[in-house]
Amino acid sequence: MSEHQQSLPVIEAFQAYLTDERRFSPYTAKCYGADLRQFVAYVAEELHTEVDWAREEQALQARLRSASGAGADIAGEVPPTVTSTILDMGADDIRSFLAHLSEQSYSPATMARKIATLRSFYKWADRRSLAPSNPMTLIRTPRQSKRLPKAISLEEVERLLAAPDDRDTLGARDRCMLETLYSTGIRVSELVDLNVEDVDEENEALLVRGKGRKERLVPLGSHALAALRAYRQKVLSDPRYRSAWEGPGPHPLMVNKHGGRISARSVRRKLDKYL
């Protein structure tokens, strides 16, 4: 199967949006595209059809004309294109795809990432009036089991998360750091490398750079997201630290007392302090 057959014009348009407007790296956009190509393959198989690039391009152009008010007819395709089928999907159709994925024994983290990809794609399509609605608003991300450090007990984890005094900016930062580490399981080195621009709040995810500078999308739990929002509010209202997030980026997400990027060593000292 060729590269065109694996993808769709609408998927490539979405990837261009990620790199051109969201400023995601080409590698990250490619990761989104890989999840969506799996979705395309599933839909094509359900339709018992092969992707015809020319017809799929026509279907996308018809949607774009309709969205611009040009009055293009987007109904009555025989046979239906994969593009139109995907853009017209409802929540039950998405659930069928997720059930298909669950049969392949993906980990909860991988399933959450694929759902985050679909959530981002359909939000983009809905905002551009390419889709009649966003079916992902009715899809919940499955709960993931908390990844606890083996060296400490559950009671110690709860005490650790509650330890920082989040009434000031640095205390709110510490609470955010601990909740993020606990929610995502990322390394301390990955935590301190995060930028403000790496937070995808709409899709409840973080763009994390790991070993070899490889990027991955990591779902962010509700408690960590709440801590992040509280920390952000503290930074933006505190004249001592607000400038750290102003001007050209990237801007360090976790700041030190001088407004610069906090070090991994400082984070580990904080962990020792609160334990």
Rank of each mutant, 00 (worst) to 15 (best):
L191G: 01
V10N: 03
A70L: 12
D126G: 08
Q233D: 11
L194N: 03
R167I: 03
F121S: 12
F97M: 05
V208Y: 08
E246R: 14
K214L: 07
P135K: 08
R213W: 04
Y32P: 04
V255D: 02
S153I: 00
K273F: 13
I152P: 00
L87K: 09
D200C: 10
Y42T: 02
K234S: 11
K211A: 03
L236Y: 01
P149C: 10
G90V: 02
V10L: 04
K123R: 15
S105T: 03
K150P: 00
R240V: 01
P26F: 06
M254L: 12
S25Q: 05
T49F: 00
I94L: 11
D165Y: 04
S66Y: 03
R265I: 15
A67E: 00
P219L: 09
V43Q: 08
A54S: 10
S189W: 00
R113T: 04
I115S: 04
S266Q: 15
E197P: 08
S84C: 12
A162N: 05
E3L: 15
Q6M: 12
Q6H: 12
I11V: 14
V255F: 04
I94M: 13
L154K: 13
D88C: 10
A99C: 07
P248D: 14
R268D: 12
P250Y: 01
N256I: 08
V82A: 06
L191F: 02
L8Q: 01
G76S: 13
A109H: 10
G185L: 06
D35A: 14
Q144Y: 02
R55D: 13
M254H: 02
L206Q: 06
Q61D: 13
R213H: 11
M1S: 15
R22P: 01
D73M: 06
R240P: 01
R113W: 09
G90E: 11
H100M: 05
S120R: 02
A264Y: 05
S84I: 04
S102C: 01
E45I: 00
D168I: 05
S145T: 03
P79R: 07
Y241G: 02
C31Q: 12
E215D: 03
E179I: 12
K257D: 14
A162Y: 00
L220I: 05
D200G: 09
L98Y: 06
G71T: 12
R269E: 14
D165M: 00
R159C: 01
W245H: 03
K150I: 01
T117R: 03
P250W: 00
T180S: 09
Q5N: 12
S107H: 02
G260E: 15
M111H: 10
E201A: 15
L206A: 11
G259L: 05
W124K: 07
D238A: 07
L8C: 08
K30L: 15
V218D: 04
A91E: 14
A151D: 14
M136W: 05
S243P: 01
